[in-house]
Simulated assay, not measured.
Amino acid sequence: MEAEYDFSQGKRGAIESTPPGKTRITIRLDDEVLAWFREQVHLAGGSSYQTLINEALRQHIQQSREPLEETLRRVVREELKRIEK
């Protein structure tokens, strides 16, 4: 270990820069919720649980914007496809 270190060229902040269109935040999730997402990623063969959480939130937003009539039509179509198989 050196007696002194030179930090004059050091940069403050995250080691990895955040890609465009993404924002780094801190969020508190229940342990059970986080464990479920991590387990899903593990069962799928690996990936990022954060990506899976992001996708779940996107789907929720899309469904929230969808009028009730469209939601019912979508669900009926999905169920009819399932029954036909």
Results as ranks from 00 to 15, higher is better:
Q9F: 00
F7A: 05
I61T: 06
F7E: 04
T18V: 14
G13V: 03
S17C: 00
K85A: 09
F37L: 13
V33T: 14
A14E: 04
V33F: 10
V76I: 14
E79I: 07
F7T: 02
V33D: 09
E39I: 01
D6Q: 05
I53L: 15
Q59Y: 11
G10R: 12
E2Y: 12
P20G: 03
D30C: 02
I15S: 10
E69R: 12
P19Y: 04
R77E: 11
Q62Y: 06
Q59G: 07
I53V: 13
R58P: 01
I27S: 01
K22S: 05
T26W: 11
S64P: 01
R82W: 09
V76K: 12
S64Q: 15
I25W: 03
L80V: 12
K11S: 12
K81S: 05
A35D: 13
I61Q: 08
T26K: 09
F7Q: 00
Q50L: 07
R73I: 09
Q59E: 12
S64F: 05
V33M: 15
I53P: 00
K81N: 06
D30M: 08
E39W: 05
L57G: 08
S8L: 00
A44K: 12
R38D: 09
H60V: 06
S8V: 02
E39H: 08
R12I: 13
W36S: 03
R65L: 14
I15G: 06
D30T: 02
L80M: 13
K11I: 03
E69L: 12
Q62N: 10
F37H: 02
R82G: 03
P20D: 07
Y49T: 04
Y5E: 12
L29K: 05
R65F: 11
Q50A: 12
E55R: 10
I25Q: 01
K11N: 06
L43P: 03
T23D: 02
H60P: 00
T51S: 14
T26E: 11
G45A: 03
V33Y: 08
A3W: 04
L68D: 12
G10P: 05
E55N: 15
R73A: 09
R82C: 04
G10A: 11
L72N: 10
I25P: 00
K85I: 08
P67D: 13
R65C: 10
Q40W: 03
S47V: 00
L34Y: 03
S47Y: 07
K85L: 15
L80S: 06
G13Q: 01
S8E: 05
G46Q: 02
P19E: 04
R58H: 08
R12A: 15
P67E: 11
Q63I: 07
G21Q: 07
A56P: 02
Q59L: 14
V33W: 02
K11F: 00
P67I: 07
Q62K: 10
L43S: 11
A14T: 13
A3Y: 03
E4Q: 09
S64K: 12
D6T: 04
G46E: 06
P20W: 00
T23L: 13
I15T: 08
I53F: 10
V41P: 01
E55K: 15
E16D: 09
E78D: 14
T18C: 09
E78L: 15
G21D: 06
T51Q: 08
S8A: 04
L72R: 14
